[in-house]
Design a protein around this nucleic acid. Structure first.
Lengths: 340, 340
DNA sequence: AAATCGAGAGACAACGTTGTCTTGCAGTAG
DNA sequence: CTACTGCAAGACAACGTTGTCTCTCGATTT
């Protein structure tokens, strides 16, 4: 009674009723004498009683914690942050809260956090896989808690998956550049271990092959500095590409920096995968294949809640289309100036 | 046994030992016969048993949930996102997980989420207040769960507070502009209800007053579009300001857009409060007073953990200094060209 | 007026785990 | 050979709540 926070028992004693009656009042059951309801309410207020969700959920039949887990690459990066926010907005009206974690491309951390969330009995899990195999989920997660993959496909575990149109978006970017007369288009991409990076490369290669062009691929770029160096290297070659397609946000920014340093930002075309703030304010504006992280988060959350509500159907693959936003850098002509 | 997930009891039955022995093994107690430990381990593996953290924490003496709450303005905006990430990084080595929520400047939502987290028994709470009074915390939160305020000061509730040097940073910005010869410096600020906005205004007013200049203040700007309109209005006046000091990220971007539309980006100086990505790649680069959201998150998390570890001391105010980063826009001279 | 019914309120067990106490058994001292 | 010590392992209660069952008492039925 004088220890920690007050319990239902303390309230019952104060109100002079039984424990169970307090429980009924707190849970809004209607079969309680209004006079007793008032006494209980008064006791609750005077003691500042708050129900203990953990104890309640232990005893309840449905065993819901009203919590979901959300594991992203890095909650601090803009893409993940916007996706996170969209998930929160879907969860809010359902009274569900979100436990978050950043994986930093670390498969071990992915497994570790998955296990931690399972111990906490989150009701569901939205995961942007870092590792290449999610087979462990069958062991770590009890069979009744649903999973939705987002941004990246999973392997070894079947579940709803929400993806951007990576192959299609990349193909569109390359076709766009070809439309402006480019014949030598270089691709700068992220680590080959990342599934989305591979898909974007595939989109590039397909179009380049179909058009009979020669591919130029630089991979393994994971940050802005590496991308800048790689771009400088490309530009300094004997036969530099006339256009760049960058596979990711930070790579795009590194490429912009490199183009500036060589004063080539108005002569070498650039299309980047993934939009970023202020892309329109640069000189020239940066043409991008925009993903829609908010739509991805919404779709993932909705799919998860459908599963939590008992939907049993074949795992679905939900594709969120990308949009090409022309802003100038992608509309630089590839035909030699005054060549005819 | 055949229902839901396996419990310690199921493991005990499978291993042929008592429930308590399983508990001891799971908790790594050393007073168990190695042979039994092995039997229990095997049973755990074969059943995929995972301990139920909720039940455990209900019974345990320390009653820790190893969860903290983090309530920010909007987990999707870059400032909050980076701060969130820093908190996660401090929490990770302690095995603590983070429940997040966005307040969207809504005091009611602040209170609602605070209450929700209290029911979940988070061990601590980091809060960027949306409302103007946090007196309710004394009622909603049990006395033993510590709170740290971040980014904005609280009222009506004493606790550690981590703030950026808002007044000092704003003053530095204005002095910087004055140093470049400006006499007519306009301030564009956020909603007056936001404490940080008021502090930045105060910094501006103090320096302007001390220097004997006349203030020009436009307040109530909360998004980029409003800021752009307000800036256009200022520029179109008979005697437009020669320099702008913008009180926040989105306002700075709106101002950049407006300056471009009037072609004044190289003649009107601009310093913005709060850094943003790519500010260095614009033409001219945008001079900013950079906050350090990562340092703020780290400091808040550290303070919280100290309190959770039992530190009892007067509430502290921790100030994270700002840095002026000159990039061009703030170094445009305010003296009429060729005037002497 | 006696028997029946229904509704409100309490007693009790249970959720899955850990703290405490007790038991049993081997090893040691007297 | 008996009594005592020490330690591993089990029995039992408890954490704060809700599901289920039972009880009481006033109201309705015949």
């Amino acid at each position: 009674m004088t220890r920690g926070r007050p319990t239902m028992n303390d309230v019952a004693r104060t109100a002079g009723v039984s424990l169970k009656t307090v429980s009924r009042v707190v849970n809004g059951e209607t079969t309680v004498d209004p006079a007793l309801v008032a006494r209980v309410r008064a006791a609750v207020d005077s003691l500042h009683y708050r129900p203990h969700l953990g104890a309640s959920m232990l005893r309840r039949n449905d065993r819901r914690t009203a919590t979901i887990g959300l594991l992203l690459e890095d909650v601090g990066n803009p893409f993940s942050a916007v996706l996170h926010r969209a998930v929160e907005d879907e969860a809010r009206p359902r009274g569900v809260h979100v436990l978050t974690g950043s994986l930093d491309e670390d498969p071990e951390r992915e497994r570790e956090l998955t296990r931690a969330f399972a111990r906490r009995h989150t009701d569901g899990l939205i995961l942007a896989p870092a590792g290449s195999d999610q087979g462990y989920l069958a062991l770590e997660l009890p069979p009744d808690i649903p999973v939705v993959f987002v941004d990246r496909p999973a392997a070894g575990f079947a579940a709803d998956t929400v993806l951007a149109g990576n192959v299609a978006g990349a193909a569109e970017a390359v076709r766009h550049l070809i439309g402006y007369g480019h014949r030598h288009i270089a691709f700068l991409g992220d680590l080959a271990g990342i599934a989305t990076a591979r898909r974007r490369l595939r989109g590039y290669l397909t179009v380049v092959d179909d058009t009979g062009l020669a591919p130029t691929v630089v991979g393994g770029l994971h940050d802005s500095a590496a991308a800048e160096a790689a771009t400088l290297d490309l530009l300094d070659r004997a036969e530099p590409p006339t256009a760049l397609f960058t596979g990711q946000n930070l790579i795009t920014i590194g490429a912009v920096r490199a183009l500036r340093r060589r004063g080539r930002q108005h002569t070498v075309a650039l299309v980047g995968f993934d939009d970023f703030p202020l892309a329109d304010l640069l000189e020239p504006g940066v043409t991008v294949i925009a993903q829609d992280p908010a739509a991805m988060g919404r779709a993932a959350a909705r799919a998860l809640f459908e599963r939590m509500d008992g939907l049993t159907a074949e795992p679905r693959e939900i594709r969120i289309p990308t949009t090409l936003i022309p802003r100038g850098s992608g509309e630089i002509s590839g035909r030699p100036t005054g060549s005819w």
